[in-house]
Computed example of a mutant assay.
Amino acid sequence: MELHVRYEGDDDPEKCSARKLARFDLATLHRSTRTTPPGIVLDPYADRALSPADADENGSGGRIVALDCSWETAEEEAFRLDGPHRSLPFLVAANPVNYGTPFRLNTVEAFAGALRILGHRDRAEEILGKFRWGHTFLELNEEPLRRYADCEDSSDVIDVQSEYLDA
Rank of each mutant, 00 (worst) to 15 (best):
Phe103Leu: 12
His120Glu: 15
Asp122Asn: 14
Pro102Leu: 11
Asn95Pro: 00
Arg116Thr: 14
Pro89Asp: 02
Leu115Met: 12
Asn95Gln: 02
Leu105Asp: 07
Arg121Cys: 04
Thr101Cys: 09
Ile117Phe: 10
Phe111Val: 08
Leu91Tyr: 09
Leu115Glu: 10
Phe103Glu: 11
Ile117Lys: 14
Arg116Tyr: 15
Gly100Lys: 05
Leu115Gly: 08
Pro89Lys: 05
Asn98Pro: 00
His85Ala: 07
Tyr99Arg: 15
Asn106Val: 03
Asn98Met: 04
Ala94Glu: 01
Leu115Tyr: 13
Phe90Glu: 04
Thr101Glu: 12
Val108His: 05
Val97Tyr: 07
Thr107Lys: 14
Glu109Gln: 04
Glu109Trp: 01
Arg123Met: 08
Glu109Thr: 01
Pro102Ser: 10
Gly100Trp: 05
His85Ile: 02
Gly100Phe: 03
Arg116Met: 08
Gly119Leu: 10
Thr101Asn: 13
Val97Glu: 13
Asn95Leu: 00
Phe90Arg: 15
Asn106Trp: 01
Leu88Arg: 08
Leu105Cys: 09
Ala112Cys: 07
Asn95Val: 00
Arg86Val: 08
Asn95Phe: 00
Arg116Ala: 14
Leu91Lys: 01
Ala112Ser: 14
Ala114Ile: 11
Ser87Glu: 06
Asn95Ala: 01
Pro102Asn: 10
Pro89Cys: 05
Ser87Ile: 05
Val97Cys: 01
Tyr99Val: 08
Leu105Ser: 10
